[in-house]
Amino acid sequence: MADEEEEEWSGSESGDYTSEDEGTEDYRRGGYHAVRIGDTFKNGRYVVQSKLGWGHFSTVWLAWDTHFSRYVALKVQKSAQHYTEAAMDEITILQQIADGDKEDKKCVVKLLDHFNHLGANGQHVCMVFEYLGDNLLTLIKYSDYRGMPIHMVKEICFHVLVGLDYLHRELSIIHTDLKPENILLLSMIDPSKDPRKSGTPIILPNCKDKTVLDSLKSTNGDLSRNQKKKIRRKAKRAAQGCVDKEVSAEADVDPETSGAAESSSSEKTNVDSVEERPTSSGNANRLSDADGTKATDQASQGNRRGGRSTRRKPLASVDLKCKLVDFGNACWTFKQFTNDIQTGQYRCPEVILGSNYSTSADLWSFACICFELATGDVLFDPHSGDKSDRDEV
């Protein structure tokens, strides 16, 4: 991965990126692709439903796969050359992971598809992933940062270790950014927030989408005048229906639950009430991940879902199966891209000291996560910008 990407990653640690959305500055040549709800990708196959999150390299969207009638997570990378190169490195690793896990038993996210998309700001690499649920940070928030029962912690850790064993022993891959935000449950903690279970209507393709218009144009040449009139009338009704659908959808959106259903990371902002705010600054002011990906909604919902009893109730029945996600900074034991890895709270001593690292770096992060799941607090709480010498470390 290129040096420029690591600078971007380092910037995420400095607290420069704390807003709840990506802003408009990077919607330019070489930057983000402007995505709208109802837009289609790959010749109409994927229809955008809602925004899941954003990062310094990409935006992530909930999409409907029309070929297989399923929800997927669509990641749209920035278009500049170094972002494209980073995406291709990630795809290489993800394909290796998928090729060795045909039976889907290794507890690692599946790359389903990838392609290039040409937009106004350039050509963007797009990755399609299986759609998963809440991340472990959201689960920790549901416990009011008081920790979870040990039997639940053990079950989660079992799945994480299955994934790490597969990556380390069979593929020689190091994740390099393991943390609660990058471990996703297979489903949502609250089923009413899961589009697969809640009966949320599927959003149709954007009525002005170019691929739809092009398909109409290509067929019109072979039609009679009456057939063309019928198509125009149907198109007009469909357009009106699409507009009505968007308006009604906006009117029905709960202001607390609109936006993302899941993402590989969490908001950095903390909106707990004063009495429920965790005392640890490690929970209130997390360092963002390597890609800086932030959920637009779901991760922060855990902070404002009502009283403690309301939030704790779903924990008793939650499915604790989970998968490792976000391989944007992964590498191999024999081919490493940078020495500047891991998020601060989960960074191992050898990386802090600038020494060589290997798969044990992930195991250090894993141990930190075990403590956090059991207690609700981070084991180590480095403060952004601190310049500690080696003796202090």
Score class of each variant (00 low, 15 high):
residue 2 A to N: 14
residue 3 D to G: 11
residue 4 E to R: 12
residue 5 E to V: 14
residue 5 E to H: 15
residue 16 D to S: 13
residue 16 D to C: 12
residue 19 S to V: 03
residue 19 S to W: 10
residue 21 D to A: 04
residue 25 E to Q: 10
residue 28 R to W: 02
residue 34 A to Q: 10
residue 34 A to T: 10
residue 35 V to F: 04
residue 40 T to H: 01
residue 44 G to P: 07
residue 46 Y to S: 00
residue 53 G to E: 01
residue 56 H to N: 11
residue 63 A to H: 04
residue 64 W to D: 01
residue 65 D to Q: 05
residue 68 F to C: 11
residue 70 R to H: 07
residue 72 V to P: 00
residue 73 A to I: 04
residue 73 A to F: 08
residue 75 K to N: 08
residue 78 K to C: 06
residue 78 K to I: 06
residue 83 Y to S: 06
residue 84 T to N: 08
residue 87 A to P: 04
residue 88 M to I: 12
residue 88 M to H: 11
residue 109 V to C: 11
residue 114 H to Q: 07
residue 117 H to S: 15
residue 117 H to E: 14
residue 117 H to R: 03
residue 118 L to V: 13
residue 118 L to M: 09
residue 118 L to D: 14
residue 119 G to K: 04
residue 121 N to P: 05
residue 124 H to Q: 06
residue 126 C to H: 04
residue 128 V to D: 02
residue 129 F to C: 04
residue 131 Y to H: 09
residue 135 N to V: 03
residue 138 T to K: 11
residue 140 I to G: 02
residue 146 R to E: 15
residue 151 H to D: 15
residue 153 V to G: 01
residue 155 E to N: 09
residue 156 I to T: 12
residue 159 H to C: 05
residue 163 G to M: 06
residue 164 L to E: 00
residue 166 Y to E: 02
residue 169 R to I: 13
residue 174 I to W: 00
residue 175 H to W: 04
residue 176 T to Y: 02
residue 177 D to E: 13
residue 179 K to A: 05
residue 183 I to C: 00
residue 184 L to S: 04
residue 188 M to P: 00
residue 189 I to Y: 05
residue 194 D to Y: 06
residue 196 R to H: 09
residue 198 S to L: 08
residue 205 P to K: 07
residue 205 P to L: 09
residue 207 C to S: 10
residue 207 C to D: 01
residue 208 K to V: 05
residue 211 T to W: 13
residue 211 T to E: 11
residue 212 V to D: 00
residue 212 V to S: 03
residue 214 D to Q: 13
residue 217 K to W: 08
residue 218 S to N: 12
residue 219 T to W: 07
residue 220 N to D: 07
residue 226 N to F: 09
residue 226 N to K: 10
residue 227 Q to D: 11
residue 228 K to D: 01
residue 229 K to T: 03
residue 229 K to H: 09
residue 230 K to Q: 14
residue 231 I to F: 08
residue 234 K to P: 00
residue 235 A to M: 13
residue 238 A to C: 08
residue 244 D to P: 00
residue 245 K to H: 13
residue 245 K to R: 14
residue 249 A to P: 00
residue 253 V to K: 15
residue 257 T to I: 09
residue 260 A to H: 05
residue 262 E to R: 05
residue 262 E to F: 12
residue 266 S to A: 14
residue 267 E to Q: 14
residue 267 E to S: 15
residue 267 E to V: 11
residue 269 T to H: 11
residue 271 V to R: 15
residue 274 V to K: 12
residue 280 S to N: 07
residue 280 S to D: 13
residue 281 S to R: 10
residue 291 D to K: 08
residue 293 T to W: 00
residue 293 T to K: 10
residue 293 T to A: 14
residue 296 T to V: 15
residue 296 T to H: 02
residue 302 G to C: 09
residue 303 N to G: 12
residue 307 G to P: 07
residue 310 T to K: 12
residue 316 A to G: 15
residue 321 K to S: 13
residue 325 V to P: 01
residue 325 V to E: 01
residue 330 A to N: 04
residue 331 C to G: 05
residue 335 K to Y: 11
residue 338 T to W: 05
residue 342 Q to G: 02
residue 342 Q to L: 02
residue 344 G to W: 08
residue 345 Q to D: 07
residue 351 V to G: 00
residue 351 V to H: 00
residue 355 S to N: 12
residue 357 Y to I: 08
residue 359 T to H: 12
residue 360 S to F: 05
residue 362 D to S: 07
residue 363 L to I: 15
residue 364 W to D: 01
residue 365 S to R: 01
residue 371 F to T: 02
residue 373 L to F: 06
residue 377 D to Y: 07
residue 378 V to T: 11
residue 388 S to T: 12
residue 392 E to N: 06
